[in-house]
């Protein structure tokens, strides 16, 4: 039986005062990390689908891309990718997809901002 999504308040949300900041909170026994990126907030399960590592403890980075020919390598400096500290698997925090294989997806959640507070919707 499904249940209605519940809003879970994020404590100390005022600490997310710059891009790249993060707060990890327990939500019904699961660790969920709220990142601030480009002025917005993104919630990601702190669980790597590879080998269950603490994904959201990893650093935020850009990603390497190439031109159509594959010769030029360009660093896309949008630092919205979290790198699992265990094995280096890299996921886009805005949608949870793995940068190398989009079939690997880590759960993400909506974040509501209201009256100066942040709420993870799960």
């Amino acid at each position: 039986m499904s249940r209605s999504p519940t809003e879970h308040r994020v404590p100390n949300a005022d600490r997310l005062d710059e891009d790249g900041a993060r707060i990890t909170v327990d939500v019904d026994g699961q660790e969920i990390t709220v990142f601030r990126y480009d002025g917005e907030y993104y919630a990601v399960l702190n669980f790597c689908v590879h080998q269950a590592g603490p994904l959201c403890e990893g650093r935020l980075t850009g990603r390497m891309t190439t031109d159509e020919d594959g010769w030029e390598w360009t660093y896309d400096d949008e630092e919205k990718h979290v790198v699992c500290p265990w094995h280096g698997w890299k996921f886009d925090i805005t949608d949870g997809t793995n940068v190398s294989d989009s079939r690997y997806v880590v759960p993400t959640y909506d974040v509501e901002k209201r009256d100066g507070e942040l709420y993870i919707v799960r």
Binding site: R63, M64, T65, G70, W73, G88, N98, V99, S100, D101
Partner: peptide
């Protein structure tokens, strides 16, 4: 290696 070192293998589109 493709999954763990994505910065080294940007030229591939699949596994």
């Amino acid at each position: 290696h493709y999954l763990e070192l994505p910065h080294d293998v940007p030229v591939l589109e699949k596994l």
